[in-house]
């Protein structure tokens, strides 16, 4: 376990509990302060232009601000990429440690959030690769097939389910999530960043270090594969 609080010795825990009232007030003040700071910032550009020099000079308060401002979005991405909450938190922690070590190499003119996304996505992909017990599924197996004359091998038919009906159906939500998880990582990450996080194609390209055209191709293939995985279930549920 990485979280320091999980490994504390009993005497340290009791010392912490004695001070819990104080820390509650401090952390509450920090949260209010952070919210106020965020509310006052007119744009991420202004926020970054003041934050980056402070980070590069080793200002620990600036690093805490970085963690609090960018942490929630990075945690959401990691939760979507990783199988468990613990894995997601570990990836975010590794990413911030890596960001802290390499902030000196951050180039002026780059976007801090894109740079951080790139670090957390790479941390997630590395952990997923290390944990994988069997080879990934091949995306080609889930792409549409065509006859020689260009017609679809299997005609497409309407679905009896929609995103609207899914809101009330937990098993349908689970099916969609587990189908997304079956996509190969290099495609799944593009689907998560483009269709779910709704980042622009050029930003996703920078995060993944690929061309915008490669993002478009991977996204289309990921959507097609997901559609293929859902199709038999969506046809089968008769209203």
């Amino acid at each position: 376990m990485k979280l320091e609080t999980r490994n504390q010795k009993p005497e340290r825990r009791s010392a912490l509990s004695l001070r819990s009232g104080f820390w509650f007030l401090v952390s509450g003040f920090r949260l209010v302060l952070t919210s106020s700071v965020k509310a006052m910032l007119p744009s991420s550009h202004i926020e970054e232009s003041s934050l980056v020099p402070r980070l590069q000079s080793g200002d620990s308060a600036a690093f805490e601000e970085l963690v609090r401002v960018h942490g929630p979005r990075l945690l959401r991405v990691a939760r979507r990429m990783m199988p468990t909450e613990e894995d997601a938190r570990d990836a975010v922690q590794d990413a911030f440690v890596s960001a802290f070590k390499s902030i000196g190499t951050f180039e002026a003119g780059s976007k801090l959030s894109t740079w951080l996304h790139r670090i957390v996505v790479n941390a997630c992909l590395m952990k997923l690769r290390a944990k994988r017990r069997r080879p990934e599924e091949t995306i080609e197996d889930y792409l549409p097939r065509f006859q020689e004359d260009g017609h679809q091998v299997e005609s497409s038919v309407a679905w009896n389910e929609s995103a609207d009906t899914m809101i009330e159906r937990a098993e349908l939500r689970d099916l969609v999530r587990s189908s997304i998880d079956r996509l190969p990582d290099t495609y799944r990450v593009v689907l998560l960043l483009r269709d779910i996080e709704e980042l622009a194609a050029d930003e996703v390209a920078k995060i993944l270090g690929i061309t915008t055209n490669a993002v478009k191709i991977r996204l289309h293939r990921a959507r097609q594969a997901l559609r293929t995985l859902l199709d038999p279930h969506m046809r089968a549920h008769a209203r």
């Binding site: 942490g71 979005r73 995103a163 349908l172 999530r177």
Partner: peptide, 29 residues
């Protein structure tokens, strides 16, 4: 519909709160 379902199933919307123990673990590290 696949795109809409992917969005609906993954609760795209409000950002999660950053757990204090995670913030503290990062700062400690």
């Amino acid at each position: 519909e696949t795109i809409r379902m992917a969005r609906a199933a993954t609760d795209a919307g409000d950002l999660p709160a950053m757990p204090e123990e995670l913030v503290n673990a990062i700062l400690e590290a």
